[in-house]
């Protein structure tokens, strides 16, 4: 078991990342809270040895995505997020940022993680494929389609 100091350090370093992935997937604060607790408890109980900060961060991203997916697999949960609920989630941000977040959050589930990892975290398609245990070509395809959707939503000229 990891120490309290290690847990607090991890919360300080990775809570924003976990929070962003939760935002991509989840619509309720209580679900986010559940995922937070689940992910950091797994970290405390995990005996995994990380070679670098990047390695550790990738672990948090993978565990958070998987935890969110597991939560959403619940039979009683809806897999699609109604647009009104997305509005509720993003309305506290500036209008420009809010519209971007809204566009990302309204993407189909299969695109959301890839867009987030590619555009925000800066992972390459190869790294995303490795992280998400997907074929690289699949990642390229999904990324290309996600770009198309975002271009439509956010304006094609600016989107690169």
């Amino acid at each position: 078991m990891r120490s309290e100091q290690e847990a607090n350090r991890a919360i300080e370093l990775y809570s924003d990342t976990v929070r962003r992935i939760c935002m991509v997937h989840l619509k309720s604060y209580s679900d986010t809270e559940d995922i937070f607790q689940n992910v950091f408890l797994k970290y405390v109980l995990s005996s995994a040895v990380f070679e670098s900060r990047e390695h550790e961060k990738a672990w948090f991203i993978r565990v958070t995505i998987n935890s969110c997916k597991d939560l959403l697999k619940n039979f009683f949960r809806s897999h699609t997020v109604p647009i009104e609920e997305i509005n509720d989630l993003v309305q506290k941000y500036e209008p420009e940022q809010s519209s971007v977040l809204e566009a990302v959050l309204s993407l189909p589930d299969k695109y959301k993680d890839i867009v987030y990892l590619f555009y925000y975290e800066g992972y390459t398609a190869v790294e995303i494929a490795k992280l998400m245990n997907k074929n690289v070509n699949t990642v390229y395809t999904l990324l290309s389609r996600a770009k198309g959707v975002l271009r439509q939503k956010l304006g094609g000229e600016e989107f690169e």
């Binding site: 924003d16 929070r19 941000y93 940022q97 809010s98 977040l101 990302v104």
Partner: peptide
């Protein structure tokens, strides 16, 4: 824009 948007998302 995506980066800036997500930059504003922080864990409470």
């Amino acid at each position: 824009k995506i980066k800036n948007a997500f930059d504003n998302v922080h864990a409470e």
